[in-house]
């Protein structure tokens, strides 16, 4: 019995011990699991946080990139704007240039017109005088009873000749200022003669002798704008006249002015027109500038400084030729080289 109680007691003690062990181990296992769950949760939150922060980092990066992109866009827009502005300015500049050129051409025309008016005045003086004489003569003839049919016919014919001459001068003048619509074949010598017919009278008045020298008339055909070419010749001749008149002021003994026009054929099928005068010559310190627009050494009421500029433009740009100057012993020499018309 006693042994039974002891065994049972022992049994009971062991059971309690085992239950205790199990309980503690269960608790520790739970503790362990709790810890691991906690670690997992922590890991999860960290992961979520990481994902979030990498998301925000990504967002931030995207935002930064967007800003940079926008900046680039803005910059390239600015650049584009600048470019268009530049283009616009180039166009404007070109336009302005063109306008200036037009103004210059207009001014040169006006200047030439001034020259021409002077020339016409001289051109008309003689026929006007003649007409006046004829008309006076009619009155006298009547007084002396000489006014018959034959006389009248002769007076009318003479008067009509003068009037025709004057009318021609006007026509020349008018033609001169029509700008050539298109290129034509024309003879350089004809053109020069047409200019001379306009300016001769004024040259005579200024006691200037003009001579023209060439070898073979038929060889000097060019294909270009005829009127513009005449303007160039007129410009150079009037400049020569001015230079001669200036030379007279310096040297009062100088009697005759001389202008010599020589037309030659160059080997490479260029026509060379040399216009020499015995004027002042071009002072060395301005020789580089005389082809610049608005450059003039003359008094404002006389000089415009456009003539040589326009001449150079016409010869070199429109006619693909050359216009240049050098001084000779007593005076200046202007040389025009233009391609001959291909026959």
């Amino acid at each position: 019995m006693k042994k039974d109680i002891l065994t049972t007691g022992n049994q009971h003690f062991n059971d309690v011990r085992n239950i205790n062990r199990d309980l503690i181990e269960k608790a520790l296992e739970m503790r362990c699991n709790a810890y691991l769950a906690h670690v997992k949760a922590k890991l999860l939150t960290m992961t979520i946080y990481d994902v979030n922060s990498s998301k925000t980092a990504l967002k931030r990066e995207v935002a930064a990139r967007t800003i940079i992109e926008n900046q680039i866009k803005h910059k390239s827009a600015q650049l584009e704007e600048l470019n268009t502005q530049l283009e616009k300015r180039v166009v404007e500049e070109v336009e302005k240039r063109r306008e200036n050129e037009l103004i210059l051409a207009q001014q040169s025309k006006m200047a030439a017109m001034g020259e021409m008016l002077g020339a016409i005045a001289h051109q008309w003086r003689q026929p006007l005088n003649a007409l006046g004489l004829y008309i006076q003569d009619i009155e006298e003839a009547y007084d002396f009873g000489e006014l018959n049919k034959e006389y009248i016919h002769k007076a009318v014919t003479n008067s009509m000749n003068q009037i025709e001459f004057m009318s021609n001068t006007i026509d020349d003048f008018r033609n001169f200022f029509k700008s050539s619509k298109e290129k034509t074949d024309f003879n350089v010598i004809d053109s020069i003669n047409e200019v001379l017919s306009i300016v001769t009278a004024s040259l005579i008045k200024d006691k200037i002798e003009l001579s023209i020298k060439f070898s073979d008339f038929n060889n000097f055909k060019i294909h270009s704008f005829a009127n513009e070419f005449k303007h160039v010749i007129l410009n150079i001749i009037t400049n020569a006249r001015d230079a001669i008149n200036d030379a007279r002021i310096i040297d009062s003994k100088m009697e005759y002015g001389r202008i010599l026009i020589t037309i030659d054929l160059l080997e490479d099928k260029h026509i060379k027109i040399t216009i020499e005068d015995n004027g002042t010559g071009v002072p060395e310190k301005i020789i580089e500038q005389i082809f610049d627009p608005y450059f003039t050494s003359k008094h404002a009421s006389v000089g415009t400084g456009i003539g040589l500029y326009m001449s150079k433009v016409i010869i070199e740009k429109n006619m693909r030729g050359k216009l240049y100057v050098n001084n000779i012993d007593h005076g200046a020499r202007f040389i025009i080289e233009i391609p001959k018309a291909s026959t």
């Binding site: 062990r21 503690i24 181990e25 269960k26 520790l28 296992e29 503790r31 362990c32 691991l36």
Partner: peptide, 13 residues
């Protein structure tokens, strides 16, 4: 190890 934890710890306690 983890699988041994609860028993090892119980013995420590």
């Amino acid at each position: 190890s983890i699988p041994h934890f609860s028993i090892v710890m119980r013995k420590i306690i």
